[in-house]
């Protein structure tokens, strides 16, 4: 069964065609077919991302196995699955762990568009404050599917 309905697909196709500028690569880390790994949402997440990637030629999906594809696992610093890396012209450290369903799916769409444009959707006063950050910051945001 598909996650996206025909009307969702049409909506996304039009939105991405109108708003995307540069390509965005989604690196998806999933369980290895030869290892017995407990990852109940890996297959669902993969299917959802495949359906999403099919809505725009500018969205490239690359599927990696964890932990077997060591080079990619190390490069992107992946320590659990399912893991999704959203990458525009460079990796700016955006990760999603788990399945981005419900409201989180809209977050993903906005993330892809922002990365594609190469600039965040934030007001100038917020950007000015963010410019003051001169040492590494990691923000973890915990969510549940809604």
């Amino acid at each position: 069964m598909a996650f996206l309905q025909e009307k969702d697909i049409q909506f996304l196709k039009e939105k991405f065609a109108k708003e995307m500028v540069n390509d965005v690569t989604i690196h998806f880390f999933t369980k290895s077919p030869v290892l017995a790994q407990d990852c109940p949402y890996c297959d669902h997440t993969k299917q959802l991302l495949e359906e999403l990637a099919a809505t725009s030629e500018k969205i490239k999906l690359m599927v990696h196995t964890y932990p077997t594809e060591k080079e990619a696992v190390e490069k992107y610093g992946i320590d659990k699955i399912p893991a999704i890396v959203f990458e525009g012209t460079e990796d700016v450290g955006i990760r999603f762990y788990g399945i981005p369903s419900g409201y989180e799916f809209s977050t993903v769409i906005e993330t892809i568009i922002d990365l594609s444009k190469g600039k965040p959707e934030l007001p100038d006063n917020v950007l000015a404050e963010l410019a003051k950050v001169t040492s590494p910051v990691t923000i973890k945001v915990f969510v549940t599917p809604t």
């Binding site: 990760r95 399945i99 989180e104 600039k119 963010l130």
Partner: peptide
């Protein structure tokens, strides 16, 4: 995205309950 020093991770906590406990 606005500052190269900042990384952001979203964690679906029902899939990673141990992280929910930790934090």
């Amino acid at each position: 995205m606005a500052n190269a020093n900042i990384r952001a991770e979203v964690i679906e906590v029902s899939e990673f309950p141990e992280l929910g406990d930790k934090y």
